[in-house]
Design a protein around this nucleic acid. Sequence first.
RNA 1: CGGGAGAUGUCAGAGUGGUCGAAUGUGCCGGUCUUGAAAACCGGUGAGGGUUAAACCUCCGGGGGUUCGAAUCCCCCUCUCCCGGCCA
Length: 414
Amino acid sequence: MIDLKYLQNNFEEASRKLQKKGVDAAMLEQLKTLFLSLKDANAQLEALKAEQNSLSKLFGQCMREGTDASALKITLDANKEALVPLQEKAREAEAALATVALSVPNFPDESVPEGADENDNVELRKVLVPRVFAFEPKEHWALAEVNGWIDFERGVKLAKSRFSVLRAEAARLERALINFFLDTNAKKGFEELCVPFINNAAMLQGTGQLPKFEEDLFKVEGEDLYLIPTAEVPLTNMYHDEILTEKELPILMTGYTPCFRKEAGSAGRDTRGMIRQHQFDKVEMVAIAHPEHSDEVFEMMVQNASDILSALGLPHRVVQLCGGDLGFSAAKTVDLEVWLPGQNKYREISSISNTQDFQARRAKIRFKDGSKNSFVHTLNGSALAVGRTLVAVMENYQNEDASIEIPEVLKKYM
RNA sequence: CGGGAGAUGUCAGAGUGGUCGAAUGUGCCGGUCUUGAAAACCGGUGAGGGUUAAACCUCCGGGGGUUCGAAUCCCCCUCUCCCGGCCA
């Protein structure tokens, strides 16, 4: 959630920033109005409550002393009734504010380039040079078919479209990649966690998936629970509603989880192969950082993910997202795109974001900042998306006969 | 899933209608003492909102109710612990 006091006091600046994300000023104007009317409703309510509290104390005193208090009682009764509509008004104001406030995206960081969509993203660097093939490289689904690695039909039978089954070497490679990622992250200081794959609604609101993106989530019927769309949700919310000490920061966490997404808006995109599935494996990094140091942590996370790709010998490029392409919670995002020779293009394999205090404010994650409490910065990033890495390994390590080499660093994991 | 007990500040644990945001102990921070430390003693120490600062409002698992007034009484929910069943 954005800082509403900041919005109130720096309206022009705030709305200029959010224009980068395509939020129109009218919505912010409405938000500001709702915020002010909440404050107003609360002020009225509290003033009457204060009066009622002090008169009640007086009444109690009269009771103890046996003094007559019937006049006082009349006032008290009247106030009590007057309190009801004020209470209702305050409650309504709060609900109205929440519905809007929780759906307003984060401010982009000052460093984020202007732009409308992915075409305006800025390539920061390329790492490793794509291999030159002496033959026409195949796409991963063709390789999978020859090798019997991915059973798309039976995945659909077991669940529905966009589900698949890994078989034989592919299943083992998937497991090897997970282990390799976790070990590498651990070496960089990330604590490995194994977390619930189902989280409650409050957690999903904390990281920003709810209330706005409910249609992207698989919900557990009859329960206040959702399958997680990313380990970012449980890892970040580990410290939901907690106050940390400054010296604990930064907290670095990593975890492997499957991720579940409805892909509601992706009809017709990547229908072939396993680039876009309803369930996929991912190893995630999450950091809870001091606001003054979150940029350094961010760079470290980008470098770590890039290093993992390099260790696997996978060519990739590092791309900074423009304002229009930033996700809802992100203030700043860098994507890593891996080279897929079969598709002859770079495809996203990792996305590293600094949400600054946006999630911290929603999830109430704070730290003792001297005598007061301040919001931490939260960061998240894939290191890496396992299924897409498998695809990248297949396409980059293919031979002319469609056999696939195992990258050197993975051999000890196989 | 059935039976019992419980949920209070860092933790432990009092508190059954007003003087309780909350005893006491503990932890933590500061001070005195000490060559230094420990012990002892003194002081401070929850959160959110609000304000220039205060005042003030809210919070004793969550929600609702009774009352002029609720940590305390009533109802619902959740969670935890113990016993039993089931089970990886």
